[in-house]
Design a protein around this nucleic acid. Sequence first.
DNA 1: GTCTATATCCAGATAGAC
DNA 2: GTCTATCTGGATATAGAC
Lengths: 199, 199
Amino acid sequence: MTDSEVPGTRIATRRARAQREILDAAWAVMAREGVAALSVREVARSVGIRQQSLTYYYPTKQALLDALFADGFADLRRRFDVLPAVTDPVAGVVDLAIAFVDHCVARPAAYHLMFQGTVPGFEPSEESHSIALTVLGELLDRLAAAGVTEPADLALVRGVMSGVAAEQIANDPAGRLFADQTERGIRAVLAEIQSPSSR
Amino acid sequence: MTDSEVPGTRIATRRARAQREILDAAWAVMAREGVAALSVREVARSVGIRQQSLTYYYPTKQALLDALFADGFADLRRRFDVLPAVTDPVAGVVDLAIAFVDHCVARPAAYHLMFQGTVPGFEPSEESHSIALTVLGELLDRLAAAGVTEPADLALVRGVMSGVAAEQIANDPAGRLFADQTERGIRAVLAEIQSPSSR
DNA sequence: GTCTATATCCAGATAGAC
DNA sequence: GTCTATCTGGATATAGAC
């Protein structure tokens, strides 16, 4: 099926292309100046239009941020989708954790927008929030396969994943010091969860 | 020795008191609206003076942020100073990690300012940065006492501490789900560091 | 120490022409 | 679709009176 077969589709893809360009520009601005410093004016400048023209695509700044939030999770889902099939349950969790950390390290702005709620006054829409939950469902599935279902245990694993990413971004932005500890950290807490040391 | 014995001291403490009030007001504003949304105007309003009068105490916004950064570490040091003496090396690390996480959870704005570099355009002065290093030296000391000195191992422990705090702040601000995993997480990675599982 | 006055700039939102 | 024009409000910073 080509565009011309469905009326309006050519326009729709044109619009989609413009929106993609805007989102990419917005990510770039955020990466350069910090998530909290995003201004629609600067995004507009990046794509060569006026601030007022951006409203045609995203009527408010909130709408732009919400689209970025959803876009970030779509991107993360794509990372998850190309992971090798799970054989060993623990390795399945490790693979996903590494993919998660690598994604966050490669896109610090996305990490702060999606997971750290660092943008003043921004709350994702219910729709975007449910996209987030769907994507993170893959993590829950893999953890369940490894026998991890207790909220406290899930929290521990999430803490390690998030913490390695956060420290890497904040304290060694050019290196891999923290990110390279992902596997060790995840295996350590999984071991603790699966056979708690007596105390 | 009382204030009146040293010329200028009474003025100095007056100034110090005013500065304390300003810093407290700034923390409150940040807690309410996010670190990145801090405005000197609003801080001034909180303490009942004009924005321009704040300049008398902190000439620029950068100076105010830098004072907040240093203040946050002074506060953290006070937390560390009242910790019980170390008996068991591992327990010593655990105690400090718990104190760290509790501090971050109680003061999310401080965590973001001090450790996540979330304020657009803010870099601590060299002086404030060295204060930070001094305070975090206590963590390094305790880790060394537990036999943890390799950069990779230090990174792993820091990742767990930071991650538990970050997730608690972002995803369960009213609860303790993540924070309560601090001990388990730290013990798990310390165990892994001290006797690596063969792989 | 605090004020008024003001400069300069940037933000986001809306109306309406083409 | 993109523009011009404009509104409104907020930000930081500086000069200088009291």
